[in-house]
């Protein structure tokens, strides 16, 4: 069994935008095994706080939007996920990063984790609906790019 990733890129530039999209699944797909989401703002990051502020205080992670994926078989709606750019609390109590605004794991949307799903490969198309939740803040970040990564299992 071989694992392959299908990447779909969406560019969101309008407040409260609702984007429908479809992803073709290859014929030899056995199953869809995981979903991964990443987001990158075109301009300034949305609500990313400096490490000095979040070392002791819990910070809210600003929400970019939510995504739903539907299959064309019994699974129907098989994935719902919220999209956050980075985890503002990943550096809590980590005094080694004090007063440094540097790249670290789980910041800047650099590292993501795939979420496992089990969907039969019979579905020829996966349909998705993405809803923007940034609202007016979208002008500040000058739009953003989302990558929807669908991991599939195929025969060798």
């Amino acid at each position: 069994m071989k694992e392959t990733a299908i990447i779909t890129i969406l560019n969101i530039s309008r407040a409260y935008e609702i984007r429908h999209f479809q992803v073709r699944i290859p014929r030899d797909t056995q199953s869809i095994c995981a979903i991964e989401l990443t987001v990158r703002a075109n301009g300034k990051s949305l609500g990313k706080v400096a490490p000095v502020e979040n070392i002791l205080n819990y910070q809210r992670n600003p929400l970019f939007g939510d995504l739903m994926l539907f299959s064309c078989e019994e699974g129907n709606c098989f994935y719902t996920g919220e999209l956050h750019e980075s985890d503002n609390n990943s550096l809590m109590f980590d005094f080694s990063k004090f007063e440094k605004d540097e790249f670290a794991e789980w910041t800047h949307g650099a590292k993501q984790e795939a979420e496992e799903v089990t969907v039969d490969g019979d579905t020829t198309v996966v349909m998705g609906v993405y809803r923007d939740k940034t609202g007016k803040a979208i002008t500040e970040i000058r739009g953003y790019e989302i990558k929807v990564i669908i991991w599939i299992k195929t025969k060798d």
Binding site: R14, A15, E17, I18, H20
Partner: peptide, 8 residues
């Protein structure tokens, strides 16, 4: 609406 690219 101009926010959606498809009507459902």
């Amino acid at each position: 609406s101009s926010s959606a690219n498809e009507m459902q």
